[in-house]
Simulated assay, not measured.
Amino acid sequence: MAPDRQPRATLRAVAEAAGVSTSTASLAFSGKGPVAADTVERVLAAAARLGYTGPDPLASSLRHGRSGIVGVVVEGRLLHAFRDPFAVSVLDGLSQVLDEVPAGMLLIAQHAGAPEKAIPQLAGTALDAVVFSLCGPDDNPAVDHLAARGIPMVGDGSPADERVVQLALDNRGASAAVSRHLHELGHRRVAHLMMPLRHDSSTGLARRAVLEDAEFADSRDRALGFLDVFPDAALLAQTSLPDVEQGAAAARLLLDRPRGQRPTAVVAQSDLLAMGVVRAADELGLRVPEDLSVTGFDGVELPWFAGTLTTVDQHGEQKGRRLGELLRRILDGERPQDEVQDTDLRLGTTTAPPAGD
């Protein structure tokens, strides 16, 4: 049998034990009022004896109409988010603004194949707002649940719903820009390495038809941007996870072929996938960029990589702060317009003109 739960000590009990009024005890405990030092000492001593640690946060939230908690919905396992330096940089930027609000951050993992499983966790949590921050699906059942509760939502382009204030990204245009860079260098036999297009994507070669059934708009739009520049590209691959290991596995399928059939460049949809391409190239004895040019997408720091990746920099920390600022405005009673996150093409040492066949 579980032990009986001890009742929570109250401020009134502390005041009685210290021989002061409840209002004086409140001022003494908070340190925000003109209370004599010896009175403060008596109140704090009484609080320590009774185990009083401060006002009940639930009661405080009911009085002020806020819980002080912002939910951050992360698609897939949290493990994968923490392994992705771009995801970490976005969460870092967001947390900086939440510290200023102030509000705490509650990370909520949403299973890619069964997003509805997150709803009971959301339903049992008092939330001031929710942020969809890391490339989730266009359709998300959590939106209806949160909207019904009147909880404001901010997204990074998804879920695609007018009830969600968006900080979107021109994924198609940014992907086309990095692809044009390769085209201008003279590359024509170029392959494309995609992030998962669906929750059940498997790592391997892919046909263009997979784009028609894509769940994740970011992956689809980056592929369309690539095809805008290289419409005749025949070599496409997708991954089950956007990490280095799966990037290397897919890249080997693209690169392990005779020289005249092998791509002279690979456009990867994330920096981690691009590092997988670099790893696979090294295993196959190919030099980057002399034998193979490689581009990424995100603009994360890669301290273990000796070179500098040519990539689309979407400024992760800044993006997180902008999500936080949108959220702050919503909590202040505004209804901000959707915004677009800027990107920059950052040239590095991983791209060069193609060598002759």
Score class of each variant (00 low, 15 high):
P137L: 07
S175C: 13
I330Q: 08
A87L: 00
S202A: 11
G93L: 09
Q314G: 00
V20I: 09
G65E: 08
A160R: 15
G356A: 14
M275V: 11
K117L: 15
E100G: 05
T203A: 04
G93M: 11
G186E: 02
S270Y: 04
A15W: 03
Q246T: 11
V288H: 08
G320Q: 06
A81D: 00
A9R: 11
H80P: 00
D243C: 09
R83C: 10
L254C: 07
F305R: 08
F230T: 06
G307W: 05
A59N: 03
G260D: 15
G71V: 07
T350Y: 09
D271G: 07
A87P: 00
R77D: 12
L224M: 12
G225Y: 01
L227Q: 05
L272E: 05
G51D: 01
R346Q: 12
S30C: 03
S89Q: 13
A46Q: 06
G93S: 11
T22Q: 14
D338T: 02
T10D: 12
R335K: 11
L323N: 10
G285L: 06
G76K: 03
A250D: 03
D99T: 09
T350G: 08
T350M: 07
E283N: 05
Q341H: 14
Q337K: 12
G285F: 03
D144M: 06
L224P: 00
L98K: 02
Y52N: 06
A123W: 03
P57M: 02
V14D: 12
V300Y: 02
D213G: 06
P263N: 05
R8M: 14
T203V: 02
R63M: 08
D138H: 02
R12N: 13
P303M: 07
D243W: 03
A234S: 13
V70D: 01
Q318D: 15
A268W: 10
L241A: 13
G348K: 04
A217S: 14
A17L: 15
G33Y: 03
S175I: 02
D92G: 04
Q6L: 15
A9D: 10
D144E: 15
E100T: 14
L44I: 03
R252K: 14
T350K: 08
E290G: 05
Q341E: 15
A234W: 00
V131A: 02
K319H: 14
D128C: 02
T311F: 12
D138Q: 13
P263F: 03
V14Y: 08
A248M: 07
F132N: 01
